[in-house]
Every structure is written in structure tokens, then in C-alpha cells.
Design a protein around this nucleic acid. Structure first.
Length: 199
DNA sequence: AAGTATACCAACCGCGAGCGC
DNA sequence: GGCGCTCGCGGTTGGTATACT
């Protein structure tokens, strides 16, 4: 059975949070051999971890140029727009946010943005009478999302499946595209979707 | 101060695709 | 074409931190 594509079958393998020592070992081996053949990486590093776990740790934490810390307003806006276009394709969204990982964006969406969305829906049903000032921006963003979903529901397919991202994006997934440029690009894309679904 | 609820996020899991043999 | 290995993705879980009572 596939050791990486299914659960780690190493019975006594370490689980849970990585220690600083493990991180150090992993980084050292990757520096020498590169981030591939994760089963061997795990073995060479002397880590009692499965390859899959090593890969995840590298991709989400140890990789160079990982940007940690709060998601900026600009990034949040970009996430909302990209999610509107791409749906739950976190790796694609992450590819357009330099330094951010798919896991981080997925977590952010699940803990922050989906919550705001629910809040907005409740408000629309009259459960919330007055919005708080600090919620105004979030609600504006949620309107964008809702509008998109309404538009998508008018068609036979939803927006997530109706186009190939390759038609819109180019460059490597590692590329650090300029956020400002991407914002302008997405504005054009939104117009295009409005044309397709709202007219 | 203690107990409980909630939020956040790192890590795990299962699946499918690509590739080489 | 079948098989095994590897990689990447998205959904989910579980531990920890923080807020609340």
C-alpha cells in the first residue's frame, strides 16, 4: 500500500507537533538533498516521521519565504476575490498570495471568512438588527461572495467548475505576483463573471 | 481562581493524478 | 496495461490559547 498517499503506516512514528530539533534535522537534509523523495528525506534526517508528514511540515512551515503572521486587509480582499473565482482550490489561491500556504489560507477561510459569511446571512434574515461599524467591511465583502453565488446558481454549472484556471493565470505557482496588479486583474475578472452570470 | 466555551491553527487523513518500470 | 511510488490537494481532527462566566 502506498506509504504516502494513505495514512502513515509506521506504527511507532512520531505524531503531533514538530519540535525545534526535528525542524532542524529536516531542514538540514532538505538543504542537501532537496525537497523530494520524502520517504528518503525522513530516513536520512533520522526522523521517526513518515515522508508525508515531513513534506507537510516543509511546505507549511520550513519552506523559505513563508510569510507568517496576520493576513493583511489587502490579502483578505484578494482571498475573497480568488475564492469567488476559484472556489475551494486553496493551492491555486495560495499560489497568488506570495508567502502564504494553502493550509494557512484554508484555515483563515474556515475560521474568519466563512464565519463572516454566516453572520451576513443571519443579518439578511433579520437576526441582527444593526451592524457594528467594524463589520461593515466584512459585510461588503460578503455581499461580493453572495452575489457571486447567486450568479453562479443561475447557470448550469457553478463558477468553480466552469473554467480552467489556466485560461486566466500564468506564471509559476511560486511566482510572487504583485498584489496590486492582481487586484486590478481580478476587477476585470469580476466584470467578466458579472457579464456571464448576471446579465 | 476555576471551569467551560470558543477560536485558531498545525497536523493528519484519504483520495486521485502523474510518472517510471 | 498494471503496479508501485511519489506528490499534491482538500477536508477534517485535535491540541492549545484565549475569552467568557
Amino acid at each position: 500500500m502506498d506509504p504516502l498517499s494513505s495514512r502513515c503506516n509506521k506504527k511507532d512514528a512520531n505524531r503531533g507537533t514538530w519540535t525545534a530539533e526535528e525542524d532542524q534535522k529536516l531542514a538540514k537534509v532538505i538543504e542537501i538533498h532537496g525537497p523530494r523523495r520524502w520517504k528518503k528525506v525522513a530516513a536520512n534526517a533520522g526522523l521517526n516521521r513518515c515522508g508525508k508528514s515531513c513534506r507537510l511540515r516543509w511546505m507549511n512551515y520550513l519552506r523559505p519565504n513563508i510569510k507568517r503572521g496576520n493576513i493583511s486587509d489587502q490579502e483578505e480582499d484578494l482571498i475573497l476575490r480568488l475564492h469567488k473565482l476559484l472556489g475551494n482550490r486553496w493551492s491555486l489561491i495560495a499560489g497568488r498570495l506570495p508567502g502564504r500556504t494553502d493550509n494557512e489560507i484554508k484555515n483563515y477561510w474556515n475560521s474568519h471568512l466563512s464565519k463572516k459569511k454566516k453572520q451576513k446571512q443571519r443579518q439578511n434574515r433579520g437576526f441582527i438588527v444593526e451592524s457594528q461599524p467594524e463589520e461593515a467591511k466584512a459585510m461588503e465583502m460578503e455581499n461580493m461572495v453572495n452575489k457571486s453565488e447567486e450568479g453562479a446558481s443561475k447557470g448550469e454549472e457553478n463558477t468553480q467548475a466552469s473554467f480552467n484556471e489556466g485560461d486566466f493565470f500564468y506564471g509559476s505557482s511560486e511566482g510572487a505576483l504583485d498584489l496590486q496588479w492582481m487586484g486590478k486583474f481580478l476587477e476585470l475578472e469580476e466584470s467578466w463573471f458579472e457579464f456571464l452570470y448576471d446579465k
